[in-house]
Amino acid sequence: MKCPNCEGFLNDDTPVCESCGFDIHEFDKVLTIPAERDGLINDWAGALSEDGSGRIKERLHNFCEQTGMDCCLVTLESAAPRSPREFVFWLFNRWQIGGEGHLGVLVLLSLAERRIEVEVGNVLEKYITDDEAAGVLEHHAVPFFKKSDYDNGLYHSLDILARIIEHGVSEEKANETAN
């Protein structure tokens, strides 16, 4: 996996970055916020309306059924004392999203920092790279967030992320059958 600070390489067994000394275990002491994972949507900040939450849950459920992968959405009041980038990385590994093979996507919305972060499992990087995921958020989430429309922003960005991965999976299946 990649180090959230310096984009260096972290080993799964000893998650300590060689170049910058980032240690994932430090987070366990500092961040005590997260409770256990509760399904696909963990709306801790209460940013979503009932309707929007229902729509997003339905979409994510479809995605998980179709591809057999995992996708999770978390909203936070604040990621303090660490940055949202580090937080999403830590949460991804703590919850083991997508199981052992990291076949999952975690999207984190942090309201105080006005940040949205996405963490893609490194197996899924062949379908969607970090830059592409960031581009999707930039295009589909940020314009809505500027108007405080979290429902639509999260729905559309997750929808596109899901579609990209679905497309990649179906392509791969088609290639396998062709070969």
């Binding site: 592409e132 295009h139 596109i160 579609r163 392509e171």
Partner: peptide
């Protein structure tokens, strides 16, 4: 607004989005 998410290659089809 249209943009390409994945460029098509000789081995796989690409994906674009239209907003």
């Amino acid at each position: 607004h249209t943009r390409t998410l994945h460029y098509a290659t000789y081995y796989s089809s690409g994906l674009g989005e239209k907003t």
